[in-house]
Simulated assay, not measured.
Amino acid sequence: MSRTTTDRSLSRHRALAVGAALLMTAGAAGAAVASDGDAARTGSSASAPHSAERAEKREAAALTGSAKMYRKTTEDVTFTFDAHLAARNNGDPSKATGTFRFVHLDRPGGKGGWAKGRIDCLMTGGKVATTTGIITDTNIREIKGGRVGFTVHDRGITDRVGYSWAGVGGPDGTKNLPKCTSSAPHEKVRTGTGDFQVLPWKVPYPTGD
């Protein structure tokens, strides 16, 4: 056998050895991941650090999404939310951040009012969220700078929405409205126009001494 043939044979064996080592490493990593997943499902103490790490990364509460309200008229009403409460602020809903926007037109593309602003409070319980915010921009001069509130019930199929001015007929944008205050979620979302997602708040229940 020539030296060239021998060198090629050695190179081939080395390549196979390296490939086998990589496969073994990948297999071990996969087994480790599967083992960690199984441990998490069975409540093994070995997975506790990983579970704790994931829990720390989860935000305390959130309300996101956009959808149009159901109407029997030609009215086109849309609510959009991107509200979040960071994990570090779990005990203080008034430190929530994000944005909101609502549009009410007499018909799609028609005339009407709109407003957008910054979130200043967010609380969620199960799949229900209540949030408030300050209007920073709008075509209704009288309500700019005021606070408005919203309530969303994330039902998965047909969500519901409420707003702080439901009882007075129009967004008054009062600066006296307390944070995280709104009406019951009495309106239905129009099917196929969007969806809302509510992340349940991890309520910081008091503990004994």
Rank of each mutant, 00 (worst) to 15 (best):
W114C: 00
I119D: 00
K202F: 03
D154H: 01
A52Y: 12
V103I: 15
G133M: 02
G37I: 10
P200Y: 02
I134C: 04
W165N: 03
F79L: 04
F100M: 03
K95S: 09
T4Q: 14
K57L: 15
K57Y: 14
G125L: 15
S66N: 05
M123H: 01
G43D: 05
T130K: 06
I135S: 05
T64N: 08
A67S: 01
V148M: 11
F150W: 12
R3F: 09
D106V: 07
E53V: 12
V77E: 03
T191N: 07
A55L: 15
L16D: 13
P206F: 01
E187S: 15
A52R: 14
T181S: 13
I157L: 10
R3Y: 14
K111V: 14
T99Q: 10
T138P: 08
E56V: 12
T158D: 06
D172G: 11
T124N: 05
G109L: 01
H104K: 12
A87E: 15
D82L: 06
R58H: 08
R118Q: 13
K57F: 12
G110P: 08
H186T: 14
W201F: 03
S94E: 07
V128H: 01
T64P: 00
G27P: 09
P206G: 04
S47G: 03
I140N: 11
E142I: 07
A46G: 06
V203E: 10
G173Y: 02
A21V: 11
R190M: 11
T80I: 09
Y163G: 00
S44Q: 03
D92V: 08
D159F: 06
M69K: 05
A26V: 15
T158N: 05
V198S: 01
T99H: 13
S11M: 08
T174V: 04
D82W: 05
G110K: 01
A17E: 08
R160Y: 04
D195L: 06
A83N: 02
T136D: 10
R141C: 05
S2K: 10
H13Y: 10
T42N: 12
A86E: 11
F150N: 00
A67P: 00
P178Q: 03
A40R: 11
A184M: 11
G19V: 04
